[in-house]
C-alpha cells in the first residue's frame, strides 16, 4: 500500500487565496483602484514591465505557513542604495523621473545564443508570469515574506544555451548617474554587480521577479526585473538588471568589493555564521511588531539547496 506523505508546501485548493484578492490583474486596474487616473496614470504607467499579468499562482512554491508581509511595508522599507541609504529613501528617489520602460536586458558571455531583448518581450517569451511566495532575509537581520511574480531563472539561461566552460553568472544593474543620487555620490562601487555559480542559478528556486502581489514591480523594489534567490541574504538578489553574463571566473560582487571580511560571494543565510558586527541567529519580522524569529539554515530552503554546498565549509565560504 502506498502511503503518500504530503509535502510541506502542498495545500488544498480551498486554502488558496482567491485570485481577485491576490492580484488586481493589471497595473492599470490597481492604479484605478487607488484612484489614480488621467495624467497621473499616464505618467506612472510607463514605469515598469507590465507583460505577463495576471500571473498564475504556483502552489508548489506557496507554503501555507508563510504569511505575506503587507504590500505597503514591502514597497516602503527598501535597501536600494542607488536611491539612498535610508529605508524610506528609495520609494521617494526611485520615483523621480527614473525611467524603467523601455528596458532592455541582455544575456551574453559564454553562451551559444546571446540575447538582447525588451523586458516585456522577455516575459512573453518565458510564457508569462507565475507567482511564488518566498521568504526574504536581509543581512541586517530582518525578514519579510514576498509574493513575487516572474519566471524561473533557469528558463532564461537555458534559452541562451550556456557553453560547457560557463561556470558562473554575473549580473549587472543599470548605470545612470542622472537618475540615481546614490550613483552620483558613489556610496558604493557602481554599477552594482552580483554573481551566482551556474548550478545555483539553475536551481529551481532562483527566480526573476517582474512583479509583487500580482502587480508590476515598483521602482523601489528593482523595476522592471530583479533576481530573487531566497536562500541567500537579500543583497544577492540584485535589482533592475540590465545584463547577465555567463563566465568561467567567479564574479566579484559589489558588497564583497566594499568589505570582503563582512560580505562574501555565497552569502547563504546561516544562523551559525555571524556577521562580524551582529548575530545572524534570529531576525526581526517586518510588520510583526515586536516579533522575532529564529533564522533557519538556507532561510528554510535546506531541502532544495543544501546539496549545492555538500562538502563545503560554510564558515569559510560565507
Amino acid at each position: 500500500m502506498l502511503i503518500r506523505t504530503p509535502q510541506a508546501w502542498e495545500l488544498p485548493e480551498s486554502a488558496a487565496t482567491p485570485e481577485s484578492l491576490y492580484h488586481l490583474s493589471k497595473r492599470r486596474d490597481f492604479l484605478k483602484a487607488l484612484g489614480i487616473t488621467g495624467a497621473a496614470l499616464a505618467a506612472r504607467e510607463a514605469l515598469a514591465a507590465t507583460a505577463g499579468f495576471p500571473s498564475k499562482v504556483n502552489a508548489a512554491y506557496r507554503d501555507p505557513a508563510l504569511k505575506p508581509t503587507a504590500y505597503e511595508h514591502i514597497t516602503s522599507y527598501n535597501n536600494f542604495y542607488e536611491f539612498g541609504t535610508d529605508k524610506a529613501e528609495p520609494k521617494v528617489y526611485a520615483n523621480r523621473g527614473w525611467k524603467t520602460e523601455p528596458w532592455t536586458v541582455e544575456v551574453t558571455g559564454l553562451v551559444n545564443h546571446p540575447l538582447k531583448l525588451d523586458v516585456n518581450d522577455l516575459v512573453e517569451k518565458m510564457g508569462g508570469a507565475e507567482q511564488r511566495v518566498y521568504r526574504l532575509r536581509c543581512v541586517e537581520a530582518w525578514s519579510m515574506v514576498v509574493p513575487w511574480d516572474g519566471f524561473q531563472l533557469s528558463k532564461l539561461i537555458a534559452l541562451a544555451d550556456p557553453k560547457a566552460e560557463a561556470k558562473f553568472v554575473k549580473f549587472t544593474t543599470f548605470l545612470d548617474k542622472a537618475s540615481s543620487p546614490g550613483q552620483r555620490q558613489g556610496n558604493l562601487d557602481y554599477p552594482y554587480v552580483e554573481g551566482l555559480r551556474l548550478d545555483e542559478a539553475m536551481n529551481e528556486l532562483s527566480f526573476i521577479a517582474t512583479g509583487i502581489y500580482g502587480k508590476a514591480i515598483p521602482n523601489q523594489n528593482g523595476a522592471p526585473l530583479r533576481l530573487v534567490v531566497p536562500w541567500k541574504y537579500g543583497f544577492k538578489s540584485i535589482k533592475s538588471i540590465v545584463k547577465l553574463e555567463l563566465t568561467d571566473k567567479q564574479p566579484k560582487n559589489t558588497w564583497q568589493v566594499l568589505q570582503a571580511s563582512e560580505y562574501g560571494f555565497y552569502a547563504n543565510v546561516n544562523p551559525t555564521v555571524d556577521h562580524p558586527r551582529w548575530t545572524q541567529a534570529s531576525e526581526r519580522v517586518i510588520g510583526g511588531g515586536l516579533g522575532r524569529q529564529k533564522t533557519l539554515l538556507f532561510n528554510g530552503y535546506e531541502a532544495q539547496v543544501a546539496s549545492l554546498y555538500q562538502g563545503m565549509d560554510l564558515r569559510k565560504f560565507y
Binding site: 516602503s76 522599507y77 526581526r284 517586518i286 510588520g287
Partner: peptide, 11 residues
C-alpha cells in the same frame, strides 16, 4: 504612521 517606520518600529 510612516510605513517605512511601522515596518520595524522598535528598530
Amino acid at each position: 504612521p510612516d510605513p517605512s517606520v511601522t515596518a520595524d518600529p522598535f528598530k
